[in-house]
Write a protein that binds this DNA or RNA. Structure first.
Lengths: 213, 213
DNA sequence: TGTCTCGTCCCCCAAATGAGTGACGCCGCG
DNA sequence: CGCGGCGTCACTCATTTGGGGGACGAGACA
């Protein structure tokens, strides 16, 4: 019985070429394809593929969000992320959400089949490029601790974050710290990048947790 | 030597009547008056009054914010809050920020002098009406614990807050919980009221602190 | 029975936020 | 000596938020 593959990819061309390629490869079968995350979430539980190939950049729900939700429905299903970008942030989020592998789209087709086989046998395939970034993320800089660390915020950033945690809005922080509003917003943005956060709530929560674990 | 009083009050009429009244009262002296919080913050450290009468409702910086900052500059100076509103929220914030007393403006003038005397001798004067609300705030409902409690959030509210702490925005929370966007916002608003918070950051911070003190 | 809290949803509005850019000077590390 | 990180500020834009309302049914509690 061939390995049943589901494809989630908004670009029709890429999607169909991928499906075609899989169907031409002995031992693989594309059993369903979706052009958006919502459809995928709805149909995949019925389709019961063995593995999902998921694009990250899609209009509407992102592949990472889709991955996270899919994992709630079907925790066991392996999902391979496919993307054109090798940016640390997406990698981080995808792995955190339970991705079973992370491939760049420019990966050559044979490697893709290999990766699917690998994932089916419990591996976590990723290109060397990605693997490097992954280990970099988990080992901040020097002689590393093995756990994901809070990237160290600068003193100013901590000041700002602390005030945010105490309920002040950006404008009030600016007043208090005698800074311009835009400066404070710059800090907040940098904090988000460092903490992999997207909102006040997440930043504050990670900040507090890093203080008292 | 008379007690030196500073007045912060935007309403000119009220301010001057108050000053006049104090200056007519033996043992009291209004040494400075300000029509806004910013001026007060700038001048009060120089003027060195014995006590500050602070209005809450002022355009621009509120009396509570002014109080908080003043306390950073001069932690020892007693500040009496004067307000027309007896709403729990302002009381809560003012006391938290270090107010030494909380009077309603409709308090009769003699009581005001008495309150100033009381504050000067280390007391925390407040009208009975206020005092009631204060104790109510510190003792949620039944047979009370003496410490300020996290008002218990409902199960749904906790669910929402938890997702907020994990970085989801209201819309995403709605999707995840299968609720309408407006419903989620209603929860968030109720959470703010219960937690005396004004933002994601403050709510999340109080929530996490209540879980691990 | 009346009054409350919940859970759910709806509307409006002004202000705050996030995101994307861009810029400039300073400092430290290689 | 350049490059990156930091601190500082500016501008634009769509979206989200916070803060007001109001509404209705289901239970709880009195």
């Amino acid at each position: 019985m061939p390995t049943k593959v589901a494809i989630v990819e908004d670009d029709r061309l890429v999607r169909e070429m991928l499906a075609g390629f899989l169907n031409d490869s002995p031992g693989f079968r594309c059993v369903c394809q979706f052009e958006n995350a919502a459809d995928a979430l709805r149909e995949i539980p019925q389709a019961r593929p063995d593995v999902v190939l998921m694009d990250i950049n899609m209009p509407g729900m992102s592949g990472i969000e889709c991955l996270a939700r899919l994992k709630e429905l079907l925790p066991a299903i392996p999902v391979l992320m496919l993307t054109v970008y090798a940016d640390t942030d997406n990698i981080f989020h995808a792995l955190q959400a339970g991705a079973s592998g992370y491939l760049l789209k420019r990966t050559d087709p044979d490697k893709l089949l290999e990766a699917i086989r690998e994932v089916m046998s419990g591996g976590v395939p990723m290109t060397g490029e990605i693997a490097q970034k992954v280990i970099a993320t988990f080992r901040p800089h020097p002689a590393g601790r093995p756990v994901p660390e809070t990237p160290e915020l600068s003193a100013r950033e901590v000041e700002v974050l602390d005030l945010l945690a105490r309920g002040f809005v950006a404008k009030e922080v600016a007043d208090r710290l005698q800074l311009s509003f835009d400066t404070v917003r710059t800090y907040i943005r940098r904090i988000y990048v460092k903490l992999h956060a997207r909102s006040r709530g997440e930043a504050v929560s990670k900040y507090l947790k890093s203080k008292r674990p």
